[in-house]
Amino acid sequence: MNVVVCVKQIPDPAAPAALDPGTHNLVRSGKLILDDSDAYGVEMALQLADAAGGGEVTLVSMAPNGETSGLRTALAMGAAKAILVSDDSLAGSDALSTAKVLAAAIRRAEPDLVIAATESTDGYTGTTPVQVAELLGLPSVTFAKKVEVDGQTVKVERQTEAGYDEVTSPLPAVVTVTAGVVEPRYPSFKGIMAAKSKPVDTLTAADLGLDGSQVGAGGARQQIISVVEAEARSAGEVVVDEGDAHERVIQFLEQLKIL
């Protein structure tokens, strides 16, 4: 079974994020890393391919400056190869443009199953995978907390407001996974060494038959007017517990007439 995993390479979330004051695009100049949210998808794909008795896991990523650090992490986990779409014309892409690029790249891999995260850590639009599914004409199941493949059917436990639904879909399909679906493995030393020589096919938008009116800032039909700091909440009273801090909590709740 061949599985494609969409993996986003993002600025390190530990460093404060910033928007470029001119373009209002996220500053992506530093080294990019594998979005932690996608480590779950990579692990899930590896386990499913294993359970199916073989097949390949192919990574698909769109990222600036030919960035491959995040891809190498996922290759070190065990993915076989990667398709990277990197092109200056893709700067400023919105979620739909991103989906067009990913869908075109995924088509090349002819997968049985496409896995993505429910939302990325930096943009967290949360719609890209469904947009990909629609562009590919595939069914989709989002918010998976458990995924199994049985022949030509994928079985998913999908989170809901009330609990979860058991959903089945014929393959090929797009499935988005939540953190917690599986525990991602750490790349082994052997895996890291092997990843260095695994193939990464780097493509431009034009290679995929997409032009500037469809993708990138040219394709984005939304405009950012301003960016301001949100109203910050200020810190209040701090009490170090000396064995009686619960009394202060009770008092506070009394003041609020909760008690």
Partner: peptide
Amino acid sequence: GRDIAGRLSAKLDRPVLTN
């Protein structure tokens, strides 16, 4: 809501503003 909005966006070729 997110599923429907994403599908609709791709069907209409219109972007979606989220969050």
